[in-house]
Amino acid sequence: MSPTGIAILGAGIFAKEAHLPAIAALGATQSTLKAVYSRSIESASYFAKEAQEVLKQSQAPDVYHDSDETSNLDVLLARSDIQAVLVVLPITLQPSIILKALTAGKHVLSEKPVAPDVAGGLELIKEYEETFKPKGLVWRVAENWEVEPGYHVAGKIIASGKIGKVTSFNVRVVNHVPKDSKWYKTPWRTVPDYQGGFLLDGGVHTIAALRVILPSPITTLTAFSSLNMDHLPPHDTIHAVVKTEDGTHGIVELTWGAPVPSRSEEANNGISITGSDGWIWIKMTRSKDANGTEQNVVRITTKQVVRNEKGEDVGESETILEERVRGVEEEIRSFFAAVNGNDDGFGAPFAALKDVAWIQAGLTSNGQPVDLVKLISQ
């Protein structure tokens, strides 16, 4: 099977630091980067040069931008040698670009979130399901935490019954975003024109991980939201009490409003799931591989009740597993497989909409219960 001809739409930080290395890791047999688009010729040209080096291509991908009608996005999308596009653009731009690419007959992998809000997401999904899916076009949402191997390992441990019946869970995500952060200095994040700011942009990751880890989906949420750091409008913090379909309840804390780095570094960030026979602790951290090279990993620590032959509790055991972080690579691999007729179900737009619904509910609850199932069935 010949490599899929692709274009990357967007030349920002995440496209450079995450998508390019992931495409390189998958290898030239999976895809060939034919073109890159950005609003400015400068950013597109710089990205194209870097892409040639990272991907070890004989020539740089062609450059497209908004300052020349002969080299704009429409011209790129008209190319027959490009079968799929990876959309890595600001949140509010993505829906229109997704539809433009689908209309041009391209398969689409778009960065999370699926849309800025639930209503827009439902409309976009409806258009895809009715107009483009029947034509055989694939649209998937690039939510790397949904396919992160470490989270799947944790979910399988819980499903196997090692910690017994899940009784409660606790999630803590505390981030410090200074004004000199490369993420904050991205113009569309500095003055966001979408709900939640960093909560929407980054918070959907954690909710996607919970979809994979928990044995029952979250269906009800009661929360309060706030802005604690003035440079992070409109909100930077959500505290929520949530309940799953099977009645299990938990606490979820999401904030990008830590005042100093130590508040984040010492927060003990991660996901803990407690069961009747033990508990499991899941966190992203740094670790060394067999060659001594540091890498990002998901560390899964499982602690179980130990019982003697009489069934008496005599202590606890501990097992630690680590999986290298490679979600971006896996989401792109999954997308290429779907384009070639082997859909594993990951990256489904409606699943990603559940993550947006969670954040939207957290921002608007103001202490009142929100039915998440009802919210996405409007």
Rank of each mutant, 00 (worst) to 15 (best):
W256P: 09
W139G: 11
T70L: 08
I213M: 10
G345Y: 03
Q368F: 12
G12I: 03
H235F: 08
H249F: 15
I251D: 14
G150P: 00
A223L: 13
K374N: 08
I359C: 11
A119T: 13
T167S: 15
R326K: 12
S58C: 07
I8C: 00
L99S: 13
N342M: 05
R263G: 14
P215G: 06
K135N: 06
K354S: 11
Q195D: 10
L221I: 09
K179C: 13
P261Y: 06
T302C: 14
L124E: 02
S287L: 06
T186I: 07
G292N: 11
T301A: 15
P116I: 02
A240Q: 04
T248Q: 04
I91A: 01
I157V: 15
A267K: 08
D277Q: 06
S365Y: 06
T255K: 10
E42W: 00
V370T: 13
T255V: 08
M284G: 12
K56A: 13
L321Q: 04
P116E: 02
G164V: 15
S262N: 09
D246W: 05
W279M: 11
E318Y: 09
R263M: 14
F132A: 07
E265Q: 04
E318N: 11
T319A: 11
S226W: 13
V370D: 04
A208Q: 07
L372K: 06
A159I: 02
Q59D: 13
A348H: 10
V370E: 14
Q360P: 07
E323D: 00
D180V: 14
D81M: 12
V141S: 01
N72P: 10
H152K: 07
H231M: 05
M284S: 11
V108D: 10
E123A: 15
I13Q: 06
V328M: 01
V63W: 00
Q30P: 11
S71T: 03
G292F: 06
P187R: 04
E323G: 00
R79E: 12
R79N: 10
T167H: 08
A209K: 03
L20T: 04
A18K: 09
G367H: 05
N269L: 10
Q304W: 11
S71D: 07
G247F: 12
V191G: 12
A25S: 14
A15C: 12
A22D: 01
K100Q: 14
